[in-house]
């Protein structure tokens, strides 16, 4: 066992943030590509940091960024070299253990949520997201899925939008007119 590895070797899936996943002495599918990307990224950052102010002054805004990018480059190269020397984990494939179908589907749904949020508005986007993802994962009946999704959405909307007046993107739903209408109604009732 690598003496440098101080983690818990049982959890290869990253049980908590203090004990990250991975194996100390084996390489997971895609790990080499990731280490390569990190190295390339660090090199690009170092170049960019040098571009901020060069070696102008110790107090230049580029001093700390350059130092950190240099540390990133050195550590990522060490990691890359070590990873190259490791054997692949037997029996793990990218499609099965790193990016199974359900993860890819959720990626797509999340990206869709992000893109639609602004133009369409929070309420319809979130409703569609919750209904689709819950239906795919839980495989329960449509009425049940609808009830859980819309019920929890209504609760979250009430807390954020009404109680904490967070202006979530309204999109195509005339939210503020709606709320003002009820406000006026309540005020009229009070008078």
């Amino acid at each position: 066992m690598d003496p440098e590895f101080r983690g818990d070797a049982d959890h290869h899936d990253g049980t908590s943030d203090a004990t990250p996943g991975g194996y100390a002495d084996q390489r997971r599918p895609g790990e080499l590509v990731f280490a390569g990307l990190m190295t390339a990224g660090s090199a690009a950052l170092l170049w960019n940091a040098y571009g901020i102010a060069g070696f102008d002054a110790l107090s230049s805004p580029g001093a700390i960024p350059m130092a950190t990018a240099a540390v990133m480059l050195v550590t990522s190269v060490i990691t890359l070299v070590r990873t190259i020397g490791l054997q692949k984990v037997a029996g793990e494939t990218l499609a099965k253990d790193i990016l199974p179908m359900i993860v890819l589907v959720m990626f797509v749904l999340l990206v869709g949520f992000g893109i639609a949020l602004k133009p369409v508005g929070f309420l319809p986007t979130a409703a569609v997201f919750l209904i689709i993802s819950m239906k795919i994962m839980a495989r329960r009946s449509w009425p049940y899925t609808f009830a859980v999704a819309l019920g929890s959405l209504a609760l979250i909307w009430l807390v954020f939008r009404i109680v904490f007046t967070v202006l979530l993107p309204a999109g195509i739903v005339p939210e503020s007119e709606f709320i003002q209408f009820f406000r006026s109604l309540v005020q009229a009732g009070a008078k």
Binding site: E4, F5, R6, G7, D8, A18, T19, P20, G22, A24, M38, V71, M72, T75, S76, I78, T79, R82
Partner: peptide, 10 residues
């Protein structure tokens, strides 16, 4: 970082 220290520094 209880895993690899090098990765932690990164």
């Amino acid at each position: 970082s209880s895993g690899s220290l090098v990765k932690g520094i990164f």
